[in-house]
Design a protein around this nucleic acid. Structure first.
Lengths: 354, 354
DNA sequence: AATCGAAGCTAAAACGATTTAACTCCCCCA
DNA sequence: TGGGGGAGTTAAATCGTTTTAGCTTCGATT
């Protein structure tokens, strides 16, 4: 008597849900038929109504869930997007993420998040890992980008003209104009500037926009009133430090235009500690309009970036890139408009409100 | 002459990377051998050194990357964790996420994020979608949890005793003690409380802890000085609203213990607008110690939750649950300790600093 | 009576890995 | 001469789908 050859089942296979083949067996049909009906493929047009009903109701009854890997393997698509950000726990990235998520999940996609914390090796490695995971597309938020990949790539605030990538960017010229006009309109002439870190992809474009805007208005940008953030953390301490240095330098100024809200907060604290009042002695304009900007004390005047919207646009764009329907190229850059939000940290030169 | 039967290749198959089989063909070996060597499986022990070298160098040369789906399909594991949070763009969740990410990526896992925005249908649906995607485990952050799933589940700040799930929670009794002791030590007796929204999983436990702590100190908790946040947004406006109402009610109080930093910020603004100074007239204690707490003006005294650490622990725990090595059950609850961070929004009753 | 076409369904080949149970040599020893 | 055993390798099944190119039937048309 030959030994009974019980085929070894996979360890976890026991309580797994029913497979397509099992379903087909139960119905006395072939997997092909079941597959075709369940996916509402055009081939199913010739399947009789009766059979279709049977299949669909059986699928419901046995709670059939298609195996994701089998399907992805066959279809060569993962319905997954990789998102790379500098840091998950900072306001900028999470706002964008929130917009990205909105759109992706609605479209039936999921996404991986990876944060590189400005480490060059990770900036290189994560996109590769994403590809190993067979993502259908990649969104890079505020992250330098040089790769050329075989999936669509969209950056948010990326300014490299990499081939095949679409950049979703703020209209920095408008942003600079809004802020500078506001300050100049209030009578400010000696304006200090806090530039972003060298690694931040917006730093350079924004700075150029500022130079252009000030030039147009005949405002001089003094190098002595220009400081630059340094350091990786997303903490107000960076703005605090440079502003303290600025005050110590004794150069007179009546306004600060900060690179972002976080540094503006640090700046305000530094000014306070130096005995300067905000906004009576120094007006401060932030950038981004993160959640807490409105609830600072005083509340922060700032240039709002529509971050959620930028995320949504990025998601739409990357998905559009996946459908090979529309020709790939399209626009290389999508620009969104900022908005000036005037709150309490700016006032007319010499004002003494309160 | 029979028509040449060129097997139709898949659309995108062209520039895809080399497969295991192709690699094996090039080497004149079988896929089995190559697989075994590349995965350093025990079976490979009997493969000659020479062959191994050949295989590994060929793999490098042709930049072989195993197909993720094929592997997952076979191995029944995805190296992916699903994380569900109320909202990606809020400080609490992102801090936890940051800790989760740290650990998961190091361990070779990726994670999906989905935010339910307190919609009951999504709280139900996302875990299902995660399972459809064959995640190996789920982490639920500040999210009510009732399911019993076939993968390990870890909650952060979950307080339901669902079977098979591990809860990572703060020691709320300690937290309440720290805060109340601090205030009482400063002479405060009439303390107002801002309770969390009903849907927040910490609300109830924290409240009970507060009742216990006050009872121990003989402090009376007046219902008239107790307000509750309402609304979904993660905005200070919620705290602002209830505090405004509190002030209007004319009940005397000299301190507020808020449910979180966000509502504390709103509370401070409301107090200010009512002509009350913080901390001279009213001391305020927040909760969480989110990034911006230290940079409020005045900076916020608060109870710090080690959110990143909680995330890391959650990640560790869920991965431990996946390895079937260690027996599944283990502790049902892992407690972490809060820490009181005294800053500028609290001072002794009757103080007039500045 | 042979042919055609439509209707309804399916066989079988992918997709790209992992894994178990052999299988082939070849040497050595009785 | 036979066979035991190790070293080195692999055939083939499996994971669960999708999809293309047919395969049956059967009634209708020439």
């Amino acid at each position: 008597m030959p030994p009974k050859k019980t085929p070894k089942r996979h360890p976890r296979a026991s309580h797994r849900s029913v497979s397509l083949k099992q379903l087909a067996d139960r119905l006395g049909l072939s997997p092909a038929t079941v597959s075709v009906v369940i996916n509402r493929s055009p081939v199913a047009d010739t399947i009789s109504q009766e059979t279709k009903k049977l299949i669909l109701s059986a699928a419901r009854k046995f709670n059939y869930r298609p195996n994701f890997f089998a399907r992805s393997l066959r279809m060569q698509r993962s319905l997954t997007i990789g998102v790379i950000v500098p840091e998950v726990s900072d306001g900028y990235a999470t706002m964008v993420l929130s917009g990205i998520e909105d759109h992706l999940l609605q479209a039936g996609y999921f996404y991986f998040v990876a944060s590189h914390r400005h480490r060059a090796d990770l900036i290189d490695e994560y996109p590769r890992l994403f590809l190993d995971r067979a993502v259908d597309g990649i969104i890079a938020v505020d992250t330098p980008w040089h790769h050329r990949l075989r999936v669509p790539v969209v950056t948010v605030s990326g300014h490299n003209e990499a081939p095949g990538v679409v950049n979703v960017v703020l209209d920095h010229e408008l942003a600079a104009n809004l802020a500078i006009n506001h300050l100049v309109g209030l009578g400010h002439r000696n304006i200090a500037f806090i530039k972003g870190q060298a690694f931040s992809s917006d730093t350079e474009v924004r700075w150029n926009a500022i130079l252009k805007a000030t030039a147009q208005l005949g405002i001089c940008v003094s190098p002595k009133l220009t400081v630059q953030l340094e350091g990786d953390e997303a903490s107000p301490i960076l703005g605090y430090n440079v502003t303290t240095a600025l005050v110590k330098s004794q150069q007179p100024f009546t306004a600060i235009f900060a690179f972002n809200d976080i540094s503006a907060m640090g700046a305000i604290r530094a000014l306070r500690e130096s005995g300067l009042r905000v906004p009576e002695d120094v007006s401060v304009v932030g950038f981004d309009d993160i959640q807490s900007a409105a609830y600072q004390n005083p509340s922060l005047t700032t240039v709002r970036q529509p971050l959620r919207k930028m995320g949504t646009i990025a998601a739409e764009t990357v998905l559009r890139g996946i459908r090979p329907a529309s020709a790939r190229p399209g626009a290389k850059e999508i620009t969104v408009a900022p908005e000036l939000v005037v709150r309490e940290t700016t006032c007319a030169l010499g004002c003494e409100e309160l």
